[in-house]
Structures are given as structure tokens and as C-alpha cells.
Amino acid sequence: MGIEFKKNLVVFHDVASVEDAEVLLEWLQGKTGAKADLSACTHLHCANLQVLMAAKPSIQAWPADAPLRAWLESALVAV
């Protein structure tokens, strides 16, 4: 459920809830070179999304869900 932190990697499972965003932000604030694995993610609350956008972790794996991936790529692919 939600998000799971491993060393430098945050792994998203299923749905990341709005409450998760606070934890995610805290975690990202203390990391440099953080990575994110979104492959098992089916949805993440908007708050998580903007935290990711602001922190710009490198995305190690995109969601399997294609429309979700399209949305996220528009926001998270470095321009």
C-alpha cells in the first residue's frame, strides 16, 4: 500500500494517499539523488505528484498503466 522507502529509492504501490505526501516530502527533503519506482503505481494523489515535480527524483520505472504514464511523463520528464 502507498509508498515504501528503500535507501535512495521510493517505491509506489497501488494508490498513494494524500497523507503519504507529507512523508514523501520529508523523505525527499533529506535525500540527494533520490530515485522513484512508479511501476506498481495505479494512482498517486495530486499532493504526491507535486512533491515529485518539485523534488525531481530520477524516475527509475514508469507506471505500467499507459494513460497514467502519459500524464506523469508530461510532468516529470525533465525538459
Binding site: 494524500v18 505526501a21 507529507e22 518539485a54
Partner: peptide, 9 residues
């Protein structure tokens, strides 16, 4: 990042 408010959209 330190000043980010996760809950302000």
C-alpha cells in the same frame, strides 16, 4: 524543497 507546502495545490 524545504519550503514546499505539499498541501497547497
Amino acid at each position: 524543497l524545504a519550503e514546499l507546502d505539499a498541501y497547497c495545490c
